[in-house]
Amino acid sequence: MAPPPSTTTSLQVESVVFPPSVKAPGTATTLFLAGAGVRGMEIEGKFVKLTGIGLYLEDKAIPSLAVKWKGKTAAELMDSVHFYSDIINGPFEKLAEVAMIVPLVGMQHAETLSKMCVAIWKAEGTYTDADSATIAKYLEAFKDQKFSPGSSILYTTTPDGLVMVSFVKDGIIPETPIVVLENKKLGHALFESVIGKNGVSPEAKQSLASRLADLMN
């Protein structure tokens, strides 16, 4: 395996520090920090920061993406929907860490994400009974879960279509995920929600473009 990209450093988003690399629960792969940013929303006319999102990629993402994107500037990458699509659909492991800045009720998070996925699949005409079963299993994992500031939800996706969900509390990354879902569409939708065309964290997209441009060049 290639060594982790040498220019990778930790990133701080508000009170959250994302380390330069992380070993995904349930896999033997160590992933490097490709970018991070805040996610927030307008509440009564004020922008409220809710979570920090760190995006980690397998080392082979760099040569895979460089075939098409090497030589592009960060600004060019940021402006390209296809660049982010190539990350979302790329044949390498990915991990998104959703770290709490404010307290979060687990079921509220899971239901919001589930509704978005189902709406996309229904609009595409691809929603199936298997997808419905996946969503039910996903929601069950968040039942009665509460996340305090500093705790995290980890989403790991593999090229063969596994989605592994893990909870980090008290700073301890578990060795095994809390649930493993076999649904490639769900993995794509999770990352689409963060860095896709209408992704929830423009700051994370900018960070990703900047760091990957440097690594590829």
Rank of each mutant, 00 (worst) to 15 (best):
Ile172Asp: 02
Gly45Arg: 03
Phe92Glu: 08
Ala99Met: 07
Gly45Phe: 06
Thr128Gly: 00
Thr128Leu: 01
Ser193Gln: 11
Leu162Thr: 10
Leu212Lys: 02
Leu154Pro: 02
Phe92Ile: 10
His109Tyr: 15
Ser207Thr: 11
Thr51Glu: 03
Ala96Asp: 06
Glu175Ala: 09
Leu33Phe: 08
Thr128Met: 00
Gly150Ile: 09
Tyr127Gln: 05
Val180Gly: 00
Ile53Asn: 06
Met1Pro: 09
Ser132Leu: 07
Val16His: 06
Met216Asp: 07
Val180Leu: 00
Val194Ala: 01
Ala213Ser: 15
Ile101Gly: 05
Phe18Pro: 03
Thr126Glu: 10
Ser151Val: 05
Gly187Arg: 04
Lys49Asp: 15
Gln206Leu: 12
Gly187Gln: 04
Thr27Cys: 00
Lys46Trp: 05
Ile173Thr: 13
Thr51Asp: 05
Glu124Ser: 10
Ser114Phe: 06
Glu42Cys: 04
Gln108Gly: 09
Gly45Pro: 02
Ala66Lys: 12
Pro3Gln: 10
Phe83Leu: 05
Lys60Cys: 06
Ser152Trp: 04
Arg39Val: 07
Ile178Gln: 13
Leu212Asp: 03
Asp214Phe: 11
Thr158Cys: 00
Pro177Tyr: 00
Ser151Phe: 02
Gly106Val: 12
Ser114Glu: 08
Thr126Val: 12
Ile101Arg: 02
Ala189Asp: 13
Ala204Leu: 13
Gln206Tyr: 06
Val179Thr: 12
Lys169Gly: 09
Ser210Arg: 14
Met78Val: 03
Gly45Tyr: 07
Ile88Ala: 01
Asp144Lys: 14
Pro91Met: 07
Glu93Ser: 06
Met107His: 10
Gly90Lys: 05
Val179Ser: 01
Val118Cys: 04
Leu57Met: 07
Pro3Ser: 13
Pro91Ser: 03
Tyr127Gly: 02
Ser152His: 12
Leu215Ser: 13
Ala96Leu: 11
Asp86Ala: 13
Lys185Met: 02
Ile173Asp: 00
Thr134Arg: 00
Thr51His: 03
Lys70Ser: 13
Ala213Gly: 05
Asn183Phe: 03
Ala123Pro: 00
Gly150Ala: 10
Val16Ala: 13
Lys115Asp: 15
Val67Lys: 15
Met164Lys: 10
Lys49Ala: 14
Ser10Cys: 02
Ser166Gly: 08
Val200Asn: 01
Pro4Tyr: 07
Thr157His: 03
Ser151Asn: 12
Leu31Asp: 03
Leu212Ser: 03
Ala133Ser: 15
Val165Trp: 00
Gly35Trp: 14
Leu186His: 02
Gly161Thr: 05
Leu212Trp: 07
Val165Gln: 02
Ser207Cys: 07
Pro5Lys: 02
His82Arg: 11
Trp69Thr: 12
Met116Pro: 00
Ala133Ile: 13
Leu77Met: 06
Ser193Gly: 04
Leu57Ala: 02
Lys23Phe: 01
Tyr127Thr: 09
Lys23Val: 15
Ala61Gly: 05
Lys23Ile: 13
Pro202Tyr: 14
Phe142Met: 09
Glu203Trp: 08
Met78Ala: 14
